[in-house]
Amino acid sequence: MESVECTDSTGGRPVRGGSPDRGRVRLWHIVTGGVLLVLSAFGSLFVGVAEVTPWGLLHADSAAVLVFLESRVPRLLAILLAGMGMSVAGLVMMHITRNRFVSPSTAGTTESASLGVLVATLFAGSEAVFVKMGVAVVFALAGTFLFLVILRRLTFSDMILAPLVGIMFGAVIGSVTTFFAYRADLLQTLATWTSGDFSGVLRGRYELLWLAGAVTLLGYLYADRFTVAGMGRSFSINLGVAYDRIVNTGLVLVAVITAVVVVTVGDIPFLGLIVPNLVTIVLGDNLRRILPVTALTGAFFVLICDVIGRLIRFPYEIPVATVVGVVGAGVFLALVLRNRNRTA
């Protein structure tokens, strides 16, 4: 129950009171969400060009079993891991930069990771997946760090300017990548990791994403410290949290998740921006409470977008990046406008 009781004097926006349970995560929320996710995940296994039905699997239709195990299950796992990872990465980034609009897609992180993949491909060939990932992590870290340095030098009165600078910064890095890809005749290869797409996911080609899953889990151990970092430097020091160290830990976490996702499925734009924002608007910023919800929501969101992409012009596929981009751009705009109304 929510009731609008009164209007606060500063912003004229309604202050909600009433139910003390507001914003609490209850067990049944998680259970309902979990059941929904499992059901949709199960359903998604039977959406695709090759006909795979639960019936066929039970009757050991060998072609169906092959598609199921080699393509559908890996694809589902990749979707869930990437969705969780990028959403949690965005959530962490939002806290360590203390800006709701800073995420891997608006801070040059994904573009830097792509540049890293290109550099690794140029020097180590296209097969060495771990080299590509390692180089991508280093580039993602360096790029994000550079963005934070730029951010610290500029003083904004408006929160929204930070992601605008970040998007420009990302575009500059992106154009450098395009230039060298063009010179090396790698433009087509480039497209596979700048545009997220799960259609190429097969057994043996997604397992790196488990690393992103592990790092996401690791993020949960630091949840309280990320929340404290979000309170700012003074509060952090007062509570005995080494502020710089926790910010750097967060950056490494974000860089690893982003790099792994870019290397395996490609960039999924706005994902790390909109999912954490939607969750925190409803549930607040206490990471211990909302990190699991963010992970679930992210997985669910990517799953739905991917299934939409598979169905919209069946039997052809639209890459998940395109679907998320369209939905995400709309939500991003709504968030910005909402923020304007709140601060105006």
Binding site: H95, R98, N99, T227, G230, M231, G232, S234, F235, D285
Partner: peptide, 9 residues
Amino acid sequence: ENHMSVRLT
């Protein structure tokens, strides 16, 4: 001066 942008209860 304390500016806290984190939404906590």
